Simulated scan of single mutants.
Amino acid sequence: MIDQDTDVPKAGALDEEAERELEGVPEHLREGGANGADAEPQDDALASLRGDLDAARQEVLYARAETQNVRRRMEKDVQDARNYAATGFARDVLSVSDNLARALDSLPADLREDERLKGFVAGIEATQRELEKVFAQNGITRIAAKGLPLDPNQHQAMLEIPTGDAEPGTIVQEMQAGYMIKDRLLRPAMVGVAKKPE
């Protein structure tokens, strides 16, 4: 005979409790669990999600790399703009420097000593020195030429001069000074190059 006082849950109560426990579990997992026929679709779905996650990670890495490249390129462009903004202006001012140098070179030595012209000559020389100082402050430097081998990156050969005093290919005459602005060519030096006498 069964004791009726023992707490045996009724069939309906058991179903309610089991339902509460399975409340958050998806329907396809409630029956049969992860074993059997349902395991394969779950593995496929998990593999697909992992593949999607890996692809998303790769895309994020590529996007980051591209962003860094764009930022570096922009920083370089900004730096170049700062360094070389005055290139056009500097090129125009070089002709002023050339004319000052020509004016000084054209003065004969006896006129330089003339008391009436001493102040005038001193003024032109001071102007030329000031111009060279401004060039130096802005990274504009004169290209060395005479006595050096011809460098096509900095010198432009205008003529060949037959001579036995210098090795062929050596610069023996400078017709116009060349200049660099920082590490870029502003204007090539126009030069005469030695060649073997015939």
Rank of each mutant, 00 (worst) to 15 (best):
G36F: 00
D38R: 05
A39L: 09
E40M: 07
Q42G: 09
D43V: 15
D43P: 04
D44N: 13
D44R: 15
L46M: 06
S48A: 07
S48D: 12
L49Y: 13
R50Y: 14
G51E: 07
D52G: 13
D52A: 14
L53S: 10
D54V: 09
D54T: 09
A55Y: 13
A56L: 14
R57T: 13
R57P: 10
Q58R: 14
E59I: 07
V60L: 11
L61Q: 15
Y62I: 13
Y62H: 15
R64D: 12
N69G: 15
N69I: 15
M74T: 13
E75V: 11
K76Q: 10
K76R: 15
K76S: 13
Q79I: 03
D80V: 05
R82L: 03
R82P: 02
R82M: 09
N83I: 03
Y84T: 00
Y84P: 00
A85D: 01
A86R: 05
A86K: 04
T87H: 00
T87Q: 02
G88C: 01
F89T: 09
F89N: 11
D92R: 06
V93H: 04
V93A: 04
V93F: 09
V93I: 11
L94M: 12
S95N: 11
S95W: 12
S95F: 12
V96Y: 05
V96R: 04
S97T: 05
S97E: 04
D98T: 02
N99Y: 06
L100A: 04
L100Q: 06
A101E: 09
R102V: 14
R102L: 12
A103W: 00
A103D: 01
A103V: 01
S106R: 08
A109T: 08
A109P: 08
A109Y: 08
L111V: 09
D114K: 05
D114C: 07
R116Q: 08
R116N: 06
K118S: 08
G119L: 06
V121C: 11
I124T: 05
A126C: 10
Q128W: 08
R129S: 10
E130S: 10
E130N: 13
L131R: 02
V134M: 05
A136G: 08
A136W: 03
Q137C: 06
Q137D: 15
Q137Y: 13
N138D: 09
N138T: 03
N138Y: 11
R142M: 09
A144W: 00
A144T: 06
A145F: 01
K146Y: 02
G147V: 00
G147E: 00
G147A: 01
L148E: 08
L148W: 01
P149Y: 05
L150Q: 02
L150D: 03
L150C: 09
D151C: 03
P152F: 05
Q156W: 04
